[in-house]
């Protein structure tokens, strides 16, 4: 196991296989401001993990550090058993990255691009199969600068997975895609997961994280505010119900963990007739997410 000088050693995994990604106390500062501020994170082998957060939350920086593209200012890190800061090309070849926007030489055709970058990998996927897999088989002879936005993203993904990575980083992969293209993209990610690729993706779309991820980490203000399965996100917050009604013409509202008790009291106070506008609501996933983010950002 590799450790960084001066950083605490990582604890051994509790059981079984080591996680694909293990992060403790990750810090990154730009101009004295911490954009990543003490992130702890485990990504298990074979899972899809979504780093969910608003723009500027520190998602991209975190991913770039994990992928060995930027240096960190603090914390300890193990990705596929190595510290990315000192990792060699063998390690690099086991990791795939799909960034937000990276060029590939616009004057090349899709097939030329894929054929060229195959030369960088130890075990590249066959070019024709790769283009088939991402749905670009019909555009093999199209120049890259004539591709649509969605096709470009597919090419990005093709190049990201071309080396058959064990771990794939996707940074906001569906930003700017239309709904149909997003759905196709999700199918692609699920396919990769089913074939044994560990995926860490960032997104600011809650529905994307909920659909794709086995676990979601909500990041805000450079801190990870919660990690949970999508359905269990903000479990504490979701126990809070809001009881609303109208009394003497004025809107009333009570936030409570025991809405039944509130209702009993209301009914006892008004044994006959209807209580106007009576409702009991629990926060949806989106409400929970927005609260987590705003609390995280203001801490």
């Amino acid at each position: 196991m590799t450790t960084t000088h001066g950083a605490p050693a990582l604890p051994a995994a509790a059981s079984g296989e080591r996680p694909a990604v293990q992060v403790r106390g990750l810090v990154k500062r730009y101009g004295g401001r911490a954009v990543v501020d003490g992130v702890d994170l485990d990504v298990r082998r074979g899972e899809v993990f979504a780093l969910l957060g608003p723009n500027g939350a520190g998602k991209t920086t975190t991913v770039e550090i994990l992928a060995g593209l930027r240096r960190r200012d603090g914390g300890s890190l193990e990705v596929l058993g190595e510290d990315p800061a000192g990792a060699d090309r063998r390690w690099r070849d086991r990791v795939g990255v799909v960034g937000q926007s990276t060029g590939a030489g616009d004057a090349l055709t899709v097939r030329e691009t894929v054929d060229h970058y195959a030369r960088y990998h130890a075990t590249p996927q066959d070019s024709a199969e790769l283009l088939d897999a991402v749905g670009l088989e019909g555009t093999a002879r199209t120049r890259v600068d004539r591709l649509s936005g969605g096709q470009r993203r597919r090419l990005e993904v093709a190049l990201g997975v071309q080396g058959r990575p064990e771990l794939l980083f996707l940074d906001e992969p569906t930003t700017g895609l239309d709904p149909a293209a997003r759905r196709q993209f999700w199918t692609l990610i699920e396919g990769l997961r089913d074939r044994g690729t560990t995926v860490l993706l960032t997104t600011h779309y809650l529905d994307e994280a909920a659909h794709l991820a086995d676990r979601v980490g909500v990041i805000a203000g450079g801190r990870l505010v919660e990690v949970a399965a999508p359905g269990a996100l903000g479990a504490g917050l979701r126990q809070e119900a809001t009881v609303r009604w109208t009394e003497d013409g004025a809107a009333r509202e009570v936030v409570t963990r025991e809405p039944s008790a509130v209702l009993r009291d209301l009914l006892a106070a008004a044994p006959t007739g209807e209580i106007p506008d009576l409702s009991v609501t629990r926060p949806g996933l989106e409400d929970v997410y927005l609260r987590l983010v705003s609390e995280g950002a203001s801490r």
Partner: peptide
């Protein structure tokens, strides 16, 4: 189409 997706070889 996704059955053509790459799968990682053991390290």
């Amino acid at each position: 189409m996704t059955d053509l997706l790459p799968s990682p070889p053991p390290a």
